[in-house]
Each structure stands twice: as structure tokens, then as C-alpha cells.
Design a protein around this nucleic acid. Structure first.
Lengths: 351, 351
DNA sequence: CTGAAAGCGCTTACAG
DNA sequence: CTGAAAGCGCTTACAG
């Protein structure tokens, strides 16, 4: 008997490099067990004798076997992918969160599938449908505009973790940043520096957190015995231009003004530019604080004092909670408390 | 005969909403044809009689049928997903490109699958393996460090479009930005304003485009008859801190200096801050130009004059080329030429 | 032009 | 503890 013939595998089998054509079947025959058993040790789905387990692991290592996620998903198993509904893949704020999610998921073997909802409930709904068609094992929703009800419904069939809300439902875990406290801290900082005439630029009213930041501003004012003046509050939309424009409105109101609190960093950057155009210097003439602590805040000129939102950490925490949900344990993590970061855009009144 | 019984489908079939459980089989029976035929009209794989085509399309619409991408991929068809190897999902430069890719792919029914290579060849190789295990229909590589050879090999089994290189191979299309010309333009702008003492902060030598930008700087100098002085060139690493640090080096060299050209915007932001810390004003004391035109450049204080790289457009173009490759047509698109954007960080010498 | 059949690579009841 | 079988939802030769 020719020794070559029997041991020779099909051409595909001899090329373990090209596109990982190693199948569970090949591992099975090498290890001398059935595919079912392989599947069981891979998924921890049932107890397998130690002897076979060892043989299987050896075979897997030798062949460099990697299960086909597509086949897995089709067969009803896990796809090892989790969908992430973000509002825009290029959002300066969510960028770090996406990376955090990716980092946390990776060691567990899961892959994120990012989709953009564009701050639009209908688009988000479509994203979720798409993710389910792709059989993701779980879905992380970064804030967004989907009604709570839709999220709860979704959670009935697939684990969901959502940020920016307080919500409780089976299979669903919500993580929320304390916007009110953050805004209170920011305003308080200005007050402590002696400022009494503090302008506030609100966020986009469509964003769920805008109201809370306004509340925080008012609350700090009240606590310091400073009257709330609606004339000092102008609407913004969370982007740079709206900050730029708001400066004019604030200045035109004729009210004295020594400090400005913008409801996010992007608007604060716009404010800095607007002030510059008016010949006013930050912080010499006007103190400025933002909210978010974008990666660019510390390299702005001047570096921006702001409320730190740990976006990257939020991503990691959200992903960690998802991993827990996936392994059947109830998450209990919470977001870090708001923290004010003093940099160079604020200064003591008259100092 | 009870009219309800025969028309009543299985429980799963009556819930077209939940996770799209509509299968090709259901469409087939409704349309009175075989699944094979459905598949053929879906994929345009073979001619189908007009009559059946109409019936099939009606059935698809009525049932809201969406093919299962997993099953498709497993069976050897298309997964309608294209892998995108980016260096970091939260890169300020690539963010817009990712969005462009997403936007361009979407109407064609394709989904991007983003993975981060972290500027590391080995990691990129792993990304590609992973993408192939997930059976993506094509792969877009945004620059990266993979050897050209690896890309060519990959292109043998799956269409590839890569940016930041000039490369030609079957199934592979490369798109390259003219870094040299961009840097030449930037330097020339400064020269035209009368500057002769122009510092240059190089990019990370590991980035493929760093050399070219340095060349462009030298070329412009030569064309203007200004001697190239190595003392005015300091190394940077494409991030803000390196720009900040470079300012000190440039100033310590004792050379006169009226302008600085940073090889990317991030470093330029660092330079602006470094100058500010030294009590120097932009552009009053020193003119500053960057490279890339990040979304934040126009709202910096002062707004940064820079070379515009259409990142968003690059994404759309790359995705468009991929779509062409996928449909069997040879792409021929090219990236827009470099364009200098004059803003407020540069000023005529002594003006 | 069109259907029946086999197969993609897994997982999961079902029987031992 | 473990294997044989059926099935996940498609696509693609193979025969008409």
C-alpha cells in the first residue's frame, strides 16, 4: 500500500494558510472524535472527557483552526459579533468610545459591528434590524433617539446595553452620565473664581442631555445665591458654528459678561473663536468652560477647562457590561462621576 | 373547509417583524417558484422569465423579505459586507473617510466592517484574516504598514482597494494623495508671503507619507532659491505633543524663524500652543501652516491655514472603486489634487 | 428558463 | 460523556 495515498488530504486541506479553510470536520478526524464533540468543547456546551478535550485542543492548535462565524451564526450559535449603534462613526466625542468598545471586546473574541444612526430614530431602527439580520449576539446603543420602548422590545430577543439613559428591563442594561452634576461643577468653578455674570450656551434640545446640563447650571447659580437670568442663556446645537454665533447674541444682549459656559467642547471652541474675532481674549477678558473633554481640548489655544467625560472608559464599560450580559451575569458597573479639569481658559475675576 | 386553516402559516411566518424570519422558502411558495429561481433574480445570476420575476418581486415586497447575509456567505455567495482596515476607529483624520465609505456603500446594500490595525503590520495581517473568515466581499485598506506583497496576495482571492500607495495588481486598486505637491504648495504659500526662515516639523518616519512631505518642503525652497537648512527641520510624530516639543527645539536652535510648517494639523495645534506658551502670537509673530485640514482646523484659534486633504471624499472614492471592482469594472478614479486653504494662521512677513 | 439536490460549516436536540 | 442526524438559509452546478 502506497503510504502517501491514504494520508494525503484534499488540496484544500493542505493549505491551512489560505483563508482558513480548516473546518471542524478536519479537526474532528485529526482528534479522532465527532464534530459534535469539538463544538462542545469550543462552546463549553457540555462536559467532555479530559482525554478528548486535550486531543481536541492539540488538533485545533496544530491545524490553526478558527471556527467560521458565518456557519456558527447560521446554525443558531453565537456569531461573536456585537452591533454598535453609534450616531456617527466620525463623531469626535464617540470616537474614543468606539475604540474602548473594540479594545474590551477583542480579548473575549468578539468583534464590534459599527453602524451610524445619524441622530435619527428611523435610521437607528433600521440599524437594529440590520444588526439582527446579521445575527449579532448583542447590541450596544450609544444614546440615540430610539424610544425606550423599542429598546426594551429589542432586549427581549438580544442583550442590549444603552448609554445616556436610565432604564431597567430584562436583558437590558443602561449606563448614564450625570450631566446635571457635571454642569453644576462647571458653573460652580466659575462662581468660585468670582464670576457672577456667566453666559450659558445650551445644547441641541433634541439631545437628551441638554436639559440636564441647563438644570445643573441653574442649580449652581441658585446655590451661590446668584439670580438666574434667561437673557444670559442662548440656544446652541452642539457644534462649533452655534458657539460662534452664540457669542454675538450674548454680547448683543448688552448684559455684562465675564464668563461663558458652553454645554459642550465643540461649542466652546466656536466661542473661543468668536471672542477672538471680537478682540476679546480667553481667559484675560472672558473665562470659558466646556463640557466633554474631547481629545482636542487639551491642545486648544488656550487649553480648555472642561468637564471630563471618560468617553474611552465609557466604551470599555459598556462593552464589559455586554460581555457580562452575554455570559449570563447581571452587570452592575457605573460610569465614573463627572470631574472638572482645570486648564487655561478660566481665570479668577480681575485676577 | 375552514378558510382560516389553509392560509394560516406557522407562528414564525406570521411575525414578519421579529428579526426578519422571512426565508427564501416562504417567498418561493408565495410566488409559486423554487428557491433557486428567487436566488437567481436576487443575484442576477441567470435570466428569469419576466412573468416570474414580477411575481417574485411582489412576493418579496409583500413579505418584506431580506436575505440572510450569513446564509448567503456560507453558501458561497456574497455577504454584502466589505472589510475596512483602518488604523484607529477614532483617528481624527480617518473619521471622515470612514463615514464616506459608509455613505457610499449603503445605497449599494453593502455594509462596512471596520477593524483597527493600530499602525502595526502584524495587527493588520490579523485584521485581514479575520475579515476573510467573515467572508467579506472586498477589503479596503487605509494606508497601513502591510507590505505591498501581502496586499497583492490578498487581492488574488478578494478585491482590494488601498490608499496611500501606488501599486498595480490584478484585483487591486490603489489611490494615492500627492503629498509632495501638497507640501510644496504649503511651503510656497509661506514663501510668497515673504517668509524665508521657515521651520519644518516632519511626520512620523514610520508613516509612508512623511518623506514625501519633507521632499515637497525642500523642493519649494529650492524653487525659490532659498537654501535648505537642516537645522530648521525637526522630527515630529504626527501628534500634538510632538508639535509642542518641536517648538522648543526650533527656538533653541537660535536660528531666526518667522514661520513654521508642520507636516500635519495635529502637530500644528501643538505648535500653536507651544508658541503661545512662549509668549509668541500666531500669526503676528510666527505664521503657521498645517497639513490635512482636519474638521477642527477651521475652528482653531486662530483658524489654521492648511493643505486640504478631502478625507471624506477619499472614503467615498475608495468605496466607489470597491463597488466597481465588485461589479467587474476596472476603476479609474483618482483623488482630488492638493489644495491650500488660506485661513488666519499665516500673514505677510512684516505685514 | 427552471427545479431538485447537494453542500457551505456549524450547532443542537435525540439517542445511547 | 459522545455520535449520527437534521437543520440553519442560502447558492450553485446538474439536469432538463
Amino acid at each position: 500500500m502506497n503510504s502517501k495515498a491514504p494520508t494525503r488530504r484534499s488540496p484544500r486541506a493542505t493549505q491551512p494558510k489560505a483563508g482558513s479553510p480548516v473546518t471542524i470536520e478536519m479537526v474532528a478526524s485529526l482528534a479522532g472524535v465527532s464534530p459534535s464533540t469539538i463544538s462542545r468543547v469550543l462552546n463549553g456546551t457540555a462536559a467532555v472527557s479530559e482525554e478528548k478535550t486535550t486531543a481536541i485542543q492539540a488538533a485545533i492548535a496544530k491545524l490553526g483552526y478558527v471556527p467560521n462565524p458565518l456557519a456558527r451564526g447560521l446554525a443558531g450559535g453565537r456569531t461573536l459579533s456585537v452591533g454598535v449603534v453609534t450616531q456617527a462613526v466620525d463623531s469626535p466625542y464617540y470616537g474614543a468610545a468606539l475604540r474602548g468598545i473594540e479594545e474590551e471586546l477583542d480579548p473575549a473574541g468578539y468583534r464590534p459591528l459599527f453602524v451610524s444612526g445619524n441622530w435619527n430614530a428611523a435610521a437607528e431602527a433600521r440599524c437594529i434590524e440590520m444588526l439582527r439580520a446579521r445575527r449579532v449576539d448583542g447590541i450596544i446603543v450609544l444614546t440615540g433617539r430610539l424610544p425606550d420602548q423599542a429598546l426594551k422590545l429589542c432586549a427581549k430577543t438580544v442583550p442590549v446595553v444603552v448609554t445616556g439613559r436610565t432604564l431597567k428591563a430584562p436583558g437590558l442594561y443602561a449606563l448614564k452620565f450625570d450631566n446635571l452634576e457635571g454642569a453644576r461643577l462647571a458653573t460652580q468653578h466659575l462662581l468660585q473664581l468670582g464670576h457672577r455674570h456667566i453666559g450659558f450656551i445650551t445644547g441641541d434640545p433634541d439631545h437628551p442631555d441638554s436639559q440636564e446640563r441647563l438644570q445643573g447650571y441653574r442649580m449652581a447659580l441658585e446655590a451661590a445665591g446668584v439670580a438666574y437670568d434667561p437673557k444670559r442663556v442662548v440656544p446652541g446645537e452642539y457644534h462649533e458654528v452655534s458657539g460662534l454665533l452664540a457669542v454675538d447674541r450674548l454680547l448683543q444682549s448688552g448684559q455684562p459678561l465675564t464668563a461663558i459656559f458652553a454645554a459642550n467642547d465643540q461649542m466652546a471652541f466656536g466661542v473661543a473663536l468668536g471672542l477672538r474675532r471680537r478682540g476679546l481674549r480667553v481667559p484675560d477678558d472672558v473665562s470659558l468652560v466646556g463640557f466633554d473633554d474631547l481629545p482636542t481640548a487639551q491642545y486648544a489655544s488656550p487649553p480648555l477647562s472642561t468637564i471630563h467625560q471618560a468617553s474611552h472608559e465609557l466604551g470599555r464599560i459598556a462593552a464589559g457590561c455586554m460581555l457580562q450580559l452575554l455570559s449570563g451575569v447581571e452587570p452592575s458597573a457605573e460610569l465614573p462621576a463627572p470631574r472638572f479639569v482645570v486648564r487655561e481658559s478660566t481665570r479668577k475675576l480681575g485676577g
